[in-house]
Design a protein around this nucleic acid. Structure first.
Lengths: 96, 96
DNA sequence: GCGATCCAATACCGTTTGGGTATGTCGGGT
DNA sequence: ACCCGACATACCCAAACGGTATTGGATCGC
């Protein structure tokens, strides 16, 4: 499992449509299809129902969606934290 | 940034030593060194101080460590959630 | 019923990324 | 000065990723 797969999954879930999701993600449809299937395969659980209209989230997919968003938000937080200059204790003569 | 990089980073932070971390991760030292440097490069922030004794977490690294652990825990939660059989509402005539 | 249409799935290919082995560079201990 | 133990670099190969072309399957219009 990769962070890309999580982003891909969230986008497909939001669009309900692999083609549109691929367009939003700036990749083409086949690799996206493969990544989604790879994710389902790794989890051992189908996340979507394939319908003639597109992709529909299954209950497992809905549960996973929340958690995936949480993970991605966590990544953003991590990056922001690392880049945060915590600053040293202000001391006299400091650059202040 | 990848989940592998986060796992690698956490392991190096815990071991304080690229060699031992690589051993724990079942990969060799050079790729691990590269992944860590790549992570620092992507963040634009050094996470470790290289000392003759090994790797020492810098403040940014300590902040990132907490967040990285949180992300990895979130991934585990996501997987567990997806695999959880929520079960349908039990209804008369159901298969059970 | 048949073709048009729209969807995801598959086949195949080039490029990129990840990890392995061998070696280099720097600093500390004796 | 030498040796040893750290991380860093060079180079190579295999696996993963994404792209194009095409197929398979279900619905809608006639």
């Amino acid at each position: 499992m990769s962070l890309s797969q999580l982003r891909y999954f969230v986008t497909v879930a939001e669009e309900g449509h692999v083609g549109r999701a691929a367009s939003r993600l700036r990749i083409s449809q086949p690799p996206l299809t493969r990544q989604i299937r790879g994710l389902e395969d790794e989890l051992g659980v189908p996340l979507f129902r394939r319908t003639p209209r597109g992709m529909e989230l299954l209950p497992a997919g809905q549960r996973f969606l929340c958690a995936a968003r949480d993970v991605l938000a966590g990544v953003d937080r991590a990056v922001a934290l690392a880049r945060t200059d915590a600053g040293g204790p202000p001391r006299p003569g400091g650059r202040g």
